[in-house]
């Protein structure tokens, strides 16, 4: 569903991704692990077209998307949930959802605000509130709900558990489980291996902009040495 081959990316003159290759198959939940600054967010941004891939190819659902504008990539069915939330602070919860609304895809149940509020009941209670005046956890939920309004086929989730209270993290885990059972494909970047372990099938580990490990989640859990080498702070 999502496939990167030998992707290089730069911030100005500094290269941040070196020949990154990874694949997420339809219906899979894949984790992208790594320390701060390893290139996880950069990888997701490059897939979304927010940062150009200087070399290599990015494919989504069988067609090449590298070089296309983010709005086209979104319309092709890829949803992006940024780590820094980036809600529209002056708009209400409902307006944030409305902005992202896209026509339904044939054969799939369309996302509506009501359906999003079923998934995130606390958002339903705040629907008229300016998004900038909500807690971090609520904003994180809104970010996910907003992306769902575009009826994506796959989601890029950038550090969904970062900076959230444990009770909200647990809620996030449930939401990701629910989305997975809906048939969504997910690529989740995480710093927290325990959170990732609970939700994902396979793992890639990034270190200094290169993929240094790829295996199933179970294999990683059974190999504490690797885990410590690449992930321990």
């Amino acid at each position: 569903m999502i496939e990167l081959r030998e992707v290089d990316a730069f911030y100005g003159r500094a290269q941040v991704l070196f020949a990154v290759s990874l694949e997420v198959r339809r219906g899979e939940v894949v984790a992208l692990l790594g320390r701060n600054g390893a290139g996880k967010s950069t990888t997701l941004k490059t897939v979304m077209g927010l940062l150009p891939a200087r070399a290599g190819t990015v494919e989504f659902a069988g067609s090449r998307i590298a070089g296309r504008a983010p709005f086209e990539i979104c319309r092709a069915g890829l949803g992006y949930v940024p780590e820094d939330r980036r809600i529209f602070p002056d708009l209400t919860v409902e307006q944030n959802l409305e902005v992202a609304r896209r026509p339904a895809r044939t054969g799939l149940r369309a996302w509506t605000p009501e359906r999003a509020f079923e998934l995130f009941p606390s958002l339903g209670r705040l629907r008229g509130r300016a998004a900038g005046r909500m807690s971090g956890g609520e904003q994180q939920m809104l970010t996910i709900a907003r992306t769902l309004m575009g009826n994506p086929l796959a989601l890029l989730l950038d550090e969904p558990s970062e900076g959230l209270a444990p009770v909200i993290v647990a809620q996030m885990r449930d939401v990701i489980g629910a989305l997975r059972s809906e048939g969504l494909t997910l690529l989740v970047s995480e710093q927290n291996p325990r959170f990732a372990a609970a939700i994902t099938d396979r793992v890639y580990i990034l270190e200094k902009g290169r993929i240094c490990y790829a295996d199933t989640m179970q294999a990683l859990l059974a190999d504490p040495a690797t885990r410590d080498a690449h992930l321990a702070v």
Partner: peptide, 19 residues
Amino acid sequence: LLVRAATQDREMLGALGVN
């Protein structure tokens, strides 16, 4: 609404499918 959203975060609006 789209215009107001664009004044707040243009790039994000693009990533949400708005040309």
